[in-house]
Design a protein around this nucleic acid. Structure first.
Lengths: 343, 343
DNA sequence: CTGAAAGCGCTAACAG
DNA sequence: CTGTTAGCGCTTTCAG
């Protein structure tokens, strides 16, 4: 019961390796009788093709790497799911590379010490700068995710963060909010996702004829709900007054909801909250979060489509794709619930 | 800038392939001068070893598969994170296999059509029965996760569900709850995780001198918070009265909290709720969930340790490991908040 | 301590 | 439509 090879099957069936291979691959032109005989031998021997050998011979691994900061961040776990599903649809297996936002780990994603592991990489960098990505990128096809400005050498998929943030602000303004804060600058987040969201937030205020107030931009010391909660609690304690809040992501929004509740501030009556990413975490928050919803499925499909083209030989310049988003309205910032009136 | 091979490096350096290989692998007995020369050639050529070829030659892939129902279920995404971290610590890469609780997909995990993809598999089945696992399991080392009764042919890691559920009940009883319900029978969940939790729940009631009431065992039609919420709403509407609730997992508990809130039932005053898995979802629920907390890190470490031993040649009988758990107390079922008294 | 050569198991070009 | 054979790139005895 050991190591059955293609050649063994060929021997038993009394045919050549090529014929066995043809059967394994379901090639059309094999006589039914031949096919039967070979299949018999395969079954008898319990033969299964060795993937590694096949890869060596074909030069294709049938695998892609998905490199993300944290597997268990709700946004990334949900995105991973769609990517896994789409990949499997295209016949790829996915190997997950968790960078934990570690610069070295991010570098290792592109600067791999060995080759031939995967056919392509989908990479969401957090610390790595555009230039560095360009410099390190080698022969492996790469599609970048996330909101930073990306090098023209790589493909890139994102949503329009500026517009999305503007829409979030517009929604709050439309509901009568006049002092709208932004939650989540994080030091070390060098890729500019937050910057773009902040920019859109400011733009949204200007669009509404308001003047951005620096005091209303809240910083968080780390990418956790705990820190977000702390930041909001601190702002409230410091007397920063706001009736609307746009958050960098649902996790931060979750922490914010907690802090507001602790402080006896009612949502949405006193403060309307908008999250980002539309994750399950926000969907079941109390109150459920209104959230900017990137089309994760489309994101996954687009990323894989681009990657596939690269794998199939496309060598052109980097392409940028903007994927659609929506504002999912829920209780934390509902329609028709003007400030200071309970529903 | 194409395909630099080991042989090319050897040529340039004017040494044999073996020597280059020795340098690449940091073998001790190479003269410093030789090493320098070879390293030079490696750098000049930008050589990187081809993993696939190495695998073919060594027979080891350095990869393990993690097969779970859903990547984005909070419990599994958190578990995945620890497994990824531990795997990377041991030098393994992880490929994620999402079964979506599909029987065929689960079968495919063990019954793989091709060999040589991974060195081992960590598998959390949901639909597959013990017998079937035993029947399908082949030569690849497998460690099973989850609570079903598992075949003696495979290793298995779990927490003691019965005891954990008893503890959950005991906690509620200690806080003065007298009508404690259990939420989450799901049809099609054939592995018995829920069964064991239910058993522990019943045992816990008996321990406290109470009589299990079938009406207090709530069924859910699918593994989603939505359905859980619906089930609880239905129970409330039907006049089922309870002052404590043990949930099959945090997701169900989240749905339950929602339904209770909608119905104007206060948690924990009117109903104290205990979740299961201690996920971020529950940590930020409102109120934050008391939850049975499997030690996910230990779970991951144990599973990988067992798998590693198998990969390294252990061929003995299946080993069962019980990993520790705790009851994390939070607001949904706090200490010192007897029923019908607000805090 | 280094070099030569025989695999690892499969694919694919090329004949037949 | 089927058979032969030369790789794919690395590891690893086994001599030297």
């Amino acid at each position: 019961m050991k190591k059955v090879r293609l050649a063994d099957v060929a021997d038993l069936a009394g045919v050549s390796m090529k014929t066995v291979s043809n059967v394994v691959h379901n090639y059309p032109h094999v006589t039914p009788e031949m096919r039967r005989k070979v299949q018999q031998a395969i079954d008898d021997l319990g033969y299964r093709p060795n993937l590694t050998a096949r890869r060596l011979a074909t030069g294709k691994t049938g695998m892609i790497a998905l490199a993300i900061p944290e597997i268990d961040h709700p946004y990334f776990s949900e995105l991973s799911r769609y990517i896994a599903e789409e990949a499997s649809r295209l016949g790829y297996r996915v190997i997950v590379e968790q960078t934990l936002s570690n610069p070295e780990a991010e570098r290792a994603v592109l600067n791999d010490r060995e080759a031939g592991l995967v056919d392509g990489v989908i990479f969401h960098p957090v610390r790595m700068q555009s230039m560095e990505v360009a410099r390190l990128q080698r022969d492996v096809p790469v599609v970048l995710l996330g909101e930073s400005t990306m090098p023209v050498t790589a493909d890139h998929v994102m949503i329009d963060n500026v517009v999305a943030a503007q829409e979030g602000v517009r929604h709050l303004v439309g509901e009568g909010r006049r002092r709208i804060a932004f939650l989540g600058m994080v030091s070390g987040d060098t890729t500019g996702s937050t910057d773009q969201r902040l920019l859109g937030y400011q733009q949204g205020l200007v669009d509404a004829g308001m003047t951005p107030d620096p005091d209303l931009v809240l910083s968080v010391s780390d990418f956790t709900p705990e820190e977000s909660s702390r930041a909001v609690a601190h702002a409230l304690a410091s007397g920063v007054a706001f009736d609307g809040l746009v958050c960098r992501d649902d996790r931060f929004a979750t922490g914010a909801l907690f802090a507001l509740r602790q402080a006896g501030v009612q949502v949405p009556r006193d403060v309307a909250v908008v999250g980002w990413d539309d994750t399950e975490l926000g969907r079941w928050a109390s109150p459920p979060l209104t959230s900017i919803a990137p089309d994760k499925r489309e994101l996954a499909a687009t990323a894989l489509a681009l990657l596939r083209e690269r794998i199939d030989g496309y060598h052109g310049i980097g392409r940028h794709r903007i994927v659609s988003h929506a504002l999912t309205i829920r209780e934390s910032a509902p329609l028709g619930a003007p400030a200071f009136q309970s529903r």
